[in-house]
Design a protein around this nucleic acid. Structure first.
Lengths: 329, 329
DNA sequence: TATCCAAATTGGATCGTTCAAGACGGCGAG
DNA sequence: CTCGCCGTCTTGAACGATCCAATTTGGATA
C-alpha cells in the first residue's frame, strides 16, 4: 500500500517548506521558476493530490456545486435534465468543480436541504432548474448570499440574479417561418395555459411571426396542460374547429398527442414539437432543439466568475435554439 | 450574520466538553441520558451541523458516493440512467450519504478519475453501471480495496463483487408467455449480437419459454446492433422470411423499428419492447419494465453494509422486471 | 565592502472534528 | 481500608491544508 502523500512529503522531496509547495499550487507567480519546477517535479513524481477536506476546512470553500435531480415527470422531459446534467458535470470538472446531486419533494424541504448542504458540506454554489414566478428558493439563496444560477429566466425580474436560458420565442418563430416557407398559412399552436413564463414565451414567437407574415392567428390557438393525452384531445378539437394545415406545439409531449390526433382525421397535417427529446428522434418528429450542453457550460461560467471573485455581476445568457427537421414537417 | 456554530459552541452551552458532544453524535450509548438530552437540546437550539470537512479529515471518510453520468447514447436509454440516478440520490440521502457525479470518455480516463476522486475527495464508494466482460475498472477498484457496486452482473464471474441486476431472462420469459397465452405461436426475437451478457440473457428467456411450450424457435431469431433503423431493417427481414405473428425485442429502440417495419407490411403483428422507456409509454408500446428505483435502493444497501462495517460480503441482488401491457401486444 | 529593499522562503498557528489516554467519583471485593 | 474496575466525562494531540508574521536570500546601490 502506498504511503499517504501530503504537502509535507512533497516539500521534503523538493527540499522546500510546506508553504512553498502551497504557493506553487495556489499562487505560482510568487515562486521563483527554478523552485517551482523542482516542486512540480516532486508533485508529479509522488502523485500528490491536494486533500480537499483539509483545504476546505481552512478556506471554507468546497469546490462543490449542487444540482437538483427531479423525479422524472411524464418521462419525456426527463431526458432534457439528463443531457443538461451531463454537460454540467463535464464543464464543472474542467473548471475544477464537482457536481453533487440532491432531491427534494417540495420547496420547503428543498430550502431545508440548502441549509443542510451549506452547513455540513460548505457547498459553493447551486444550479436551479425551472424557476417559477416569485420563487422562494431564489429569494432564500439571495438573502443568504449564496452564489447560484438558474437555468430558466426569472420572468418577473430579469435582473434579479444570474441566469441562462434558451430563447423559446426565437425557436417557435423559426419553426413558424419554416412552416410559412413550406406554404402553410393556417398554422395552429398547441400551448400551455397562459401564466407560465416558458409557455407564454414559446407562444409569442408563433404569434408575432404569423402577424408579421400577415396571417391572422385568431382561433388557431389552444391551451392545455402538458401531456400526450391532453395534446391529442386539444389537437383533435383544433383540427375539427379550425382546420389548420400545420400544428406547432409547446412540447414534444403535446406534439406526440397531436400526431396521434392527426393520424386519425388529417394525416397530412404538419407537426412540430419542442425540446427535441429522444421521443421526437424516435418517431421522426420535427422539433426545436435546445443547446443543453452549451447552456450547462454557460451556467458554470457564470458561477465560476462569481466564485473566483472576478466580478459580482448578475450576468445573463440567452441561447438560440435550432429547428431539427425530420419527417413530420 | 449568525456566528459559526461548532462543536465547541454546543459544548459550552450544554456545559460539557467537546468530546462529549462528539460522543452524543457518534456513540450515544456511552453518554448518560441526562447529559445526552442536554446536549441534544443545545444542538437543536443552536442549529448545529457537523462540519463534514473536519470530520472527514479526521476519519478519512467523506460519506460521498460517486456515480458516472454517461453521455446520452442513442437517447432512448438515457432515461433509464436518469431514473436510476434519482433513486440512488434519494436512497443515499436517507442513509446519510450524498451522490457525486463524474464523467469520463474512456475506461483509461475513468480509472484516472477514480484515482483523483479518491485522492482529493476521499470518496467512500463507487456505483458503476453497465460493466463488460473482464472490465478493467472493477479490477482496479478491487485491487485498491475500494468499495463499489455494479448495476449489472459481472457475467464472467458472478461472485467477483457485489452487484444488483434485473433478471432480463425472466422479463422476456414473461413477455413470451404473455404472447403464447394470447394465442401466438410464431414469436420472433429481435436481439443484439451474441456475446453481450445482457443481450444473451434476454434472448435466453424467450428461447427457453418457446422450447418449454413445444415451439421450435429456429429461424425466428435475428441479431442486430441497437437502434431504430437497425430494428426496422432486421424486423423487415424477419417478417418477410419467417412470417412471425409477434415480435419480442431486446430494447425499445429495436421495438420501435419493428413497429415501423410492421406498419408497412404486417400491421397486425404484436410487438413488445424492453426497458419501458418514455418512448414506449408515448407510442403505446408494450414493454418490459425494470424496477430502477428498487435497483438503486439495493445498490445503496449493499454499499452501506460494507461501509458501515457490518460485513464484507459480496452480496447479489437479482430483481424481477414486470411486463407493462399497452396497445401493441 | 556595507547597506538596503524586495522577493522568496520559513515556522508556527489555525480551521472543526475525532482519537487516545487519562481523571474522577462511586461501588464491590479482598 | 485499600485496591481495582466501571461508567462517565475531560484534556491534549492529530488529521492536512492555508494564513500570517517573521526571516533569509539575492541583487542593486552607495
Amino acid at each position: 500500500m502506498a504511503e499517504k502523500v501530503t504537502i509535507a512529503t512533497v516539500a521534503q522531496r523538493a527540499r522546500v517548506s510546506r508553504q512553498t509547495v502551497s504557493n506553487v499550487l495556489n499562487a505560482p507567480h510568487i515562486v521563483r521558476e527554478e523552485t517551482r519546477l523542482r516542486v512540480q517535479e516532486a508533485i508529479a513524481a509522488l502523485g500528490y493530490r491536494a486533500n480537499q477536506a483539509a483545504r476546505q476546512m481552512r478556506t471554507g470553500r468546497s469546490r462543490l456545486i449542487a444540482v437538483r435531480i427531479e423525479p422524472t415527470r411524464d418521462g419525456i422531459n426527463g431526458s432534457v435534465l439528463d443531457r443538461f446534467l451531463h454537460g454540467l458535470t463535464e464543464t464543472a470538472e474542467a473548471a475544477g468543480y464537482r457536481v453533487m446531486l440532491y432531491t427534494a419533494h417540495d420547496t420547503e424541504r428543498e430550502i431545508a436541504t440548502y441549509d443542510d448542504l451549506l452547513g455540513s458540506y460548505d457547498l459553493d454554489a447551486f444550479v436551479l432548474t425551472g424557476t417559477d414566478h416569485g420563487d422562494p428558493r431564489t429569494a432564500w439563496l439571495a438573502r443568504r448570499g449564496v452564489p447560484f444560477v438558474t437555468f430558466g429566466r426569472p420572468w418577473d425580474a430579469p435582473d434579479a440574479h444570474p441566469w441562462v436560458d434558451v430563447d423559446g420565442a426565437a425557436g417557435t418563430a423559426e419553426a413558424t417561418t419554416h412552416l410559412l416557407t413550406a406554404g402553410h398559412r393556417r398554422i395552429g399552436f398547441l400551448g400551455w395555459p397562459a401564466g407560465s413564463g416558458v409557455g407564454d414565451d414559446r407562444r409569442s414567437g408563433w404569434h408575432r411571426t404569423l402577424v408579421a407574415a400577415g396571417v391572422d392567428p385568431v382561433g388557431l390557438d389552444r391551451e392545455t396542460v402538458d401531456g400526450i393525452a391532453e395534446g391529442e384531445r386539444a389537437a383533435g378539437g383544433l383540427l375539427a374547429e379550425a382546420a389548420p394545415t400545420a400544428l406547432l406545439c409547446a412540447s414534444d409531449s403535446l406534439a406526440l398527442g397531436a400526431l396521434q390526433a392527426a393520424r386519425a382525421t388529417a394525416p397530412e397535417v404538419a407537426v412540430i414539437g419542442f425540446d427535441d427529446t429522444p421521443v421526437a428522434a424516435a418517431v421522426g418528429l420535427t422539433s426545436v432543439s435546445q443547446p443543453l450542453g452549451e447552456a450547462a457550460a454557460r451556467c458554470v461560467d457564470l458561477l465560476t466568475a462569481v466564485l473566483d471573485g472576478r466580478h459580482h455581476t448578475t450576468g445573463h445568457v440567452l441561447l438560440q435554439p435550432a429547428l431539427v427537421r425530420r419527417h413530420t414537417a
